[in-house]
C-alpha cells in the first residue's frame, strides 16, 4: 500500500509537478489538487495502475466557495479494494463556467454522481453520455446548492416560499 506522499511523488514524476498545486497532507483526509485539464488522464492512471488500482469511486462532492473566491471545488474520493487504500483528489473550477471532463468511462458510478453535481451546482461535465437533472424535476430553474441561488416564486402554479398564515384569532 502506497502512502499519500508516495502517491503524490508517483504522480509528480509521471505527469509533471506543474499540473498539481500544493498537496494538503495535514488535512483530516489528505488530498491532492490538480488541473482540471489533466483530470481524465490522471484518474485513468490511478484507476488502472498496478501500484494504485483505485477501482472504486466512492463519491464526487462539489463545494461552492462563494462569489468572492469565485471557484467551485470538485472532490473525488477514490478507494482501492485490493490495497485497502483511499485517496481524495481536488479539482478547482471557475465558478462562472464550471466544466470538468467526465469520468463515467472509467467508473460507471461517476455517471450519476456527475448528474447530481450538475443538478445542484450546474457543473458541466464534457463528454458525459446523459447529463440531465437527477434529483430535481426536469423543468426546475437554477441550481440550488449555489451560494447565490434564488428560489423561484412558483412551480407549476404553486407558491414556493412559505407564507405567514392568517391570524387564527380573526376567524
Amino acid at each position: 500500500m502506497k502512502s499519500f506522499q508516495e502517491m503524490v511523488e508517483l504522480l509528480h514524476t509521471k505527469f509533471g509537478a506543474m499540473h498539481f498545486s500544493q498537496p494538503k497532507p495535514t488535512n483530516p483526509i489528505p488530498y491532492l489538487s490538480l488541473n482540471a485539464a489533466k483530470l481524465g488522464e490522471v484518474m485513468q492512471f490511478l484507476a488502472s495502475d498496478e501500484s494504485c488500482y483505485f477501482d472504486h469511486l466512492s463519491a464526487i462532492s462539489a463545494v461552492d466557495n462563494g462569489l468572492e473566491a469565485n471557484t467551485i471545488d470538485l472532490f473525488y474520493n477514490l478507494y482501492s479494494y485490493p490495497f485497502n487504500n483511499s485517496l481524495m483528489v481536488q479539482v478547482v473550477l471557475n465558478r462562472e463556467t464550471p466544466t470538468a471532463p467526465t469520468l463515467s468511462h472509467i467508473w460507471k458510478t461517476a455517471d450519476w454522481h456527475e448528474r447530481e453535481a450538475f443538478d445542484l451546482f450546474g457543473i458541466q461535465f464534457s463528454g458525459h453520455p446523459d447529463l440531465r437533472r437527477i434529483l430535481l424535476p426536469a423543468d426546475w430553474e437554477g441550481h440550488p446548492m449555489r451560494k447565490d441561488y434564488q428560489q423561484q416564486n412558483y412551480y407549476h402554479g404553486v407558491k414556493v416560499v412559505w407564507e405567514k398564515p392568517e391570524d387564527p384569532t380573526n376567524q
Binding site: Y149, V158, P165
Partner: peptide
C-alpha cells in the same frame, strides 16, 4: 405546513393543502 423545511426547503411544498 412544510414542517422543518418551511424556510430553506426550496423543494418542499409548504403544506399539501396548496395542492
Amino acid at each position: 405546513c412544510g414542517g422543518p423545511y418551511w424556510q430553506h426547503g426550496y423543494h418542499v411544498v409548504k403544506g399539501v393543502d396548496k395542492i
